[in-house]
């Protein structure tokens, strides 16, 4: 018993020391005055692994440390409005413009995009494969009453889906085939796989989860399926305690050459094509 206790205590000590070690990096970079940047972002850029891939390079170059909070676009923006972020990275144009109009944000900087894709069972029961647009595909799904999983959570993806449905969005309890899950992208894809249903998803999240899913990309790259990501610096005049310098530094870096090169390469090796594209100025 005593021996076990000794082993446990020494393990704890080792872990504590290892954790402390992380703080003492002396690589010569100057530490900024306020070194913590709080970024509020959507699940898709974080869960697809993009930020964990990009940010270490930024942190090493500048000495900042970035705290990423990821949630649906609605919550991501609300957190920033409550003064809990220095900048946001989201993908819902209407909400972004509202955020700026209300004085919370400084400027909307669209900097990268990718495409939403419609995924579904390989058999494609509603025969949407050669549809011209997502809207046409959705109409076929509704006609066939084929199961469809919706995010239903006010996220950027959900808003894009609602825009595609337009007037025809199914919203009554009788529409049995339309499953409004109210969960994150990963959970919705899992549900679509379980129920052999269609789902609108960003390509990055789908590809990074594909191995565990019985789903394929059925429709890709329609005109109405473009998905633009923007950076917005929180307005220090409206919100207290915003790390403006940090936010500016991160935005400058994210739109600069080094990050651009990294983003353009991201996913190429693993999936054969990049997951995000840069917006050319």
């Amino acid at each position: 018993m005593k021996k076990l206790l000794a082993v446990l205590i020494s393990l704890m000590l080792i872990f504590t020391l290892a954790a402390c070690g992380g703080n003492t990096d002396d690589d010569g970079t100057k530490t900024p005055e306020n070194p913590v940047i709080r970024m509020s972002t959507t699940t898709s850029v974080n869960d697809s692994g993009l930020l964990p891939y990009l940010l270490p390079a930024f942190e090493a170059a500048t000495g900042y440390s970035v705290e990423v909070q990821s949630a649906g676009t609605g919550a991501a923006i609300q957190k920033a409005k409550d003064g809990n972020a220095d900048l946001i990275l989201v993908h819902a144009k209407a909400s972004e413009e509202e955020f700026i109009a209300e004085g919370y944000g400084v400027e909307r900087i669209p900097f990268m995009y990718n495409y939403f894709v419609v995924v579904g069972p390989e058999a494609d029961p509603a025969a949407i494969k050669d549809s011209e647009s997502a809207a046409a595909a959705f109409a076929k799904i509704a006609d066939a009453e084929a199961p469809f999983v919706s995010r239903g959570d006010d996220s950027g993806t959900h808003k894009a889906e609602l825009k595609i449905w337009g007037e025809a969005v199914p919203d009554s309890a009788e529409d049995d085939w339309y499953i409004s899950a109210g969960q994150g992208m990963g959970a919705c894809l899992t549900m679509a796989s379980e129920k052999a249903a269609y789902c609108l998803t960003d390509k990055a999240t789908f590809l990074s989860n594909k191995a565990d899913l019985d789903l394929d990309i059925i429709l890709a790259e329609g005109e109405d399926m473009k998905n633009t990501y923007s950076l917005i610096e929180c307005n220090p005049e409206k919100l207290e305690g915003v790390n403006t310098e940090g936010a500016k530094a991160l935005i400058e870096w994210m739109t600069g050459d080094e990050a651009s090169a990294l983003i353009a390469k991201y996913g190429e090796e693993e999936y054969g094509s990049p997951l995000f594209y840069l917006i050319e100025e």
């Binding site: 949630a71 649906g72 609605g74 309890a173 499953i179 409004s180 899950a181 969960q183």
Partner: peptide, 22 residues
Amino acid sequence: GNIQWKTRVMTTAIMLETNKGN
């Protein structure tokens, strides 16, 4: 699965509204 009209309960509805920012 927090499915609307089927399996959504109070706690998952609260979680959903929190995620929406409401």
